[in-house]
């Protein structure tokens, strides 16, 4: 199976820079638009220690904004038609991009011990391991 990611430079540089992405500590069994700025963001407050506070479906959330290292970007892909068989080529279009993510835990301050935060360590290590050696 071949996967195409289409969009190129124009879409990566597009005007959606300020997209706010929230990572919640739960799985919402839905795939649709959500009125985040209406129901969620009005309740996000900052505590004295800089940790963010919010509530989702009555559950207390604590979070922090994680900025991606320079030269990295998050992208959101969209597939118009999913092929019927697994062998067919698939085409994804870049529809949005983001430079940070707000990471939320259920009633627990995010720390270096969180998997999501640790996963970003790989970016530095990968760079050290795989970037071409300049002589």
């Amino acid at each position: 199976m071949l996967v195409h990611i289409l969009g190129g430079k124009n879409n990566l540089e597009c005007s959606y820079r300020d997209s706010k992405i929230h990572s919640l500590p739960c799985k919402i069994h839905a795939d649709c638009d959500a009125p985040v700025s209406k129901y969620f963001e009005p309740y996000v407050t900052s505590q004295e220690d800089g940790i963010l506070k919010a509530s989702f479906r009555g559950f207390p959330l604590l979070g922090m904004k994680i900025n991606f290292p320079e030269h990295y970007k998050g992208i959101i892909l969209h597939e118009s038609i999913r092929p019927e068989t697994e062998d067919e080529e698939r085409r994804f279009y870049v529809v949005n991009n983001f430079n940070s993510i707000t990471y939320w835990n259920w009633d627990k301050s995010p720390t270096k011990n969180d998997l999501f935060v640790q996963a970003l360590d790989w970016l530095d290590i990968a760079e050290a391991l795989h970037s071409p050696i300049m002589e």
């Binding site: 739960c26 919402i28 479906r57 009555g58």
Partner: peptide, 23 residues
């Protein structure tokens, strides 16, 4: 609304998407 009341959680089961918590 107090989400933790059974009246609220029952109503949610009927008319909102199911949510599973990580833990």
């Amino acid at each position: 609304v107090r989400f933790s009341w059974s009246t609220a959680s029952t109503a949610l089961e009927e008319s909102a998407y199911h949510v599973e918590w990580e833990a």
